[in-house]
Write a protein that binds this DNA or RNA. Structure first.
Lengths: 247, 247
DNA sequence: CGCCTGGTTGACGCTATTCAAAAGTCGTGG
DNA sequence: CCACGACTTTTGAATAGCGTCAACCAGGCG
């Protein structure tokens, strides 16, 4: 399927975050030629696969999945529209994670060699992609703080605070809440908990008047309270965009 | 202080992992001009600082530190000789982590602008640094699996398995063990545990004949057993080096 | 209508934390 | 050489947080 790349969340993110000009943005958009749909639970690719395409999430939610031998799993990252699923596929021989659609997804595939060539030809574009990698990293680092040192309630609160920012950036959130089509089981896999405990912790947040998840939507009843509980500070999202330095 | 860059663990890593030729390697080495010493516990820089240099660890151990408001901390990454402490400092406005020396360290500082310029001039060099970022990422992703889903014993076992590989790669480990100058408290900060529990878990590993930490060294008493316990598979370290694709 | 997935709740157990104290280690200075 | 202090390791006892198991309920969809 043909992509309307120019209006995609990814290109809009590039516009807002990087100093690329219209020509450079256009060159990137031109690589986003074919669009694929994935049903929920479907894998875009799996751990161990050899990368052939770079996948950019246009719509829906997905996750980077790490599987454990006993069948349990961990979501190393939650991906929303505008996120690149697998930049590292550009240079790595084998994926060390899979990417799974959490909801029905629409994905732009970008030819790996073509993107590499474009980056080589335009250092500014290479920098933009490197920048996106760094932001991705920062999010994962912050998630690891949650896993290492925050309680279940704090993890959920932090997760909600982060997502409202990320989604708002692509105009998919209101200050009052956002659409969150994740089952409690999937939330658990993202936060290093069990489904049962996520359930209890959600009730805790609800009864304490902080946030509520129902009908596939998160309502932030007390945004300031949530941020206080999670000790959330959005600096790590680097929403001001990359530091522009002379080429 | 002047650096003997060519013999540094970092340059040797570049040689082994990337397809850069001697000229390109030399150009990178030429940027590693000044060497600084840091005492244990000293910060190379702190969260919130504006990046000015890129820091490459030549000797000693360091960690990327994320601080919590209550004084607790989390080590988002453990750095050893040959690791870049802060690639993202190249493009980010403010660090979202600090880097702390865990032992006396020797660090090469690289001028940020100069490295950016070099990457722009030589796409192959840019790729090499991007590649190192990806490997760094993969390690952090795997660590997040430990934090999310592995028990204390498995975390320690996995940590030891990873380090013996990473250190062996720069010729600083024997198959039988390696030098590990981390206090139990610091191990705890890397693994999302408490010092007390690390102590108990180390005893568990010792009495079950898997591994022992004493006198600043880890002895791997039963490497295969350790790997089995941790379900360690070194694929994510990408020790085969980057996928070479035509420029 | 029955099935299937996801949400909800209770009882119980285990893992890791907390608090506290004692013993070992190492560097420093007298 | 010993004494001292600071830090690290070690161990115990009590507790908290989260996981496990199991049952039940609600809604969507064939």
């Amino acid at each position: 399927m043909k992509v309307n790349a120019t209006e995609s969340a990814f290109i809009r993110r590039l516009r807002k975050l990087t100093p690329l000009d219209d020509l450079q943005i256009g060159a990137v958009a031109d690589l986003m030629v074919d669009e694929q749909k994935f049903a929920a639970e479907r894998h875009l690719f799996s751990e161990g696969d050899q990368p052939e395409w770079t996948h950019i999430l246009l719509d829906g939610w997905a996750a980077r999945v790490k599987l454990l031998p006993d069948g349990r799993r961990h979501f190393a990252a939650i991906l929303v529209a505008g996120d690149i699923c697998d930049v590292d596929g550009l240079l790595v021989r084998r994926y060390d994670y899979g990417v799974m659609a959490l909801t029905p997804c629409s994905v732009a595939r970008v030819n790996r060699q073509a993107l590499l060539a474009l980056c080589d030809a335009h250092p500014a574009i290479a920098r933009a992609f490197t920048w996106l990698t760094f932001v991705d990293n920062a999010i994962i680092n912050e998630a690891s703080v949650s896993l290492a040192r925050r309680t279940a309630a704090q993890r959920l609160a932090h997760f909600f605070c982060e997502l409202v920012q990320r989604l708002d950036f692509i105009d998919r959130a209101q200050p009052t809440g956002f659409n969150c089509p994740l089952s409690q089981e999937k939330l658990a896999d993202a936060l290093g908990l069990t489904g049962v405990h996520v359930n209890r912790t959600l009730r805790e947040l609800r009864t304490s008047g902080l946030a509520a998840l129902s009908g596939g939507a998160v309502r932030l009843l007390d945004p300031a309270g949530l941020r206080r509980l999670a000790n959330f500070s959005p600096a790590y999202l680097h929403l001001e965009g990359m530091r522009s330095t002379p080429l």
